[in-house]
Amino acid sequence: MTTKKKRSAHTSNDSWVVIAADSALDKTKLDDGDPTFIRLRNPATGAASQYLFSRGDVRLYEVKAFVEDFHSWFIDQTVQRDGRLLYVTPMDPLFLLLPYLQSGAVEGKFQPLQQIVMDEDYPGCTRMLKCTQALDTLQHVADEKVVGSQKFHRYSQEKTMDWLKKKVLNTVSALKKSDISVGGGVKSTTYVRVKQETDVTEEDYLRYAHGLISEYISEDLSKDLHKHLQLPEISSPKEVEPPSKKRKLSDKPVEAGEDYTKFNSADFARKPPKKMTAAQKTLAKVDKTGMKSMSSFFSPKVKQEIK
């Protein structure tokens, strides 16, 4: 190619390509009000994320964007420069309520929900008070007291852990039905798919599902859930490098999240936990020869620590 102009930055949008659950934009009753995209506090990151309320705020959806560089759309007789594809998928509103319930729990008091779900940075969060799915399932994460006509709630860590565990198990069964690769068979950008492993363990599924659910809860809850699931603790905080650094060091495009840690299994084999869970026993028996190649995915620093 000859001289090319520098890429100009893309500014704001006035059109979007979306794939949405049919239920999200289905207006059954006229008085439901229009669906609304709204910015709420992401329960995992604490930062702002886009969600969508529909059917008069009764249903909650999350918005995820497929973002890959160098894409644009043709839509009939137009070009849309922004090549993102937005997904609007249903989401369990309890995930969004949890941080509020948890922060209310500090005083250990029962409180009316209206007092718990308040956020001056995200005033839209009060819409969740109309979200029937959230209200109907609150008992999964909170104790409840009824005084007269008013309901009072108090966060329960125990209930929450059980609820999250069920979520993880639901996700495990969803994963098993899917062809999503949960084991070491990480896809690479060179499009070499590691042969679908026949030896994917129950623990692989658990870890993967735990990782997915962790996208919806705080880091602390994620760690608590990890324990609650009796997943072997194998990564020390020291090994967790900033993502940018890790990426620079590894030449292979693995976005391991915490899943790669299972390949640090030498670490926990050295000091086995007192009681082995069934999953751990299975893991101990797993033929690790095929995992050797995975070492190339680790940064040199991590490798040293394994030795």
């Binding site: 979520k167 639901n170 997915l212």
Partner: peptide, 11 residues
């Protein structure tokens, strides 16, 4: 989307 539906499903 399919996975999201499953993760959303009430327990």
């Amino acid at each position: 989307p399919k996975l999201a539906e499953m993760m959303r499903a009430p327990v």
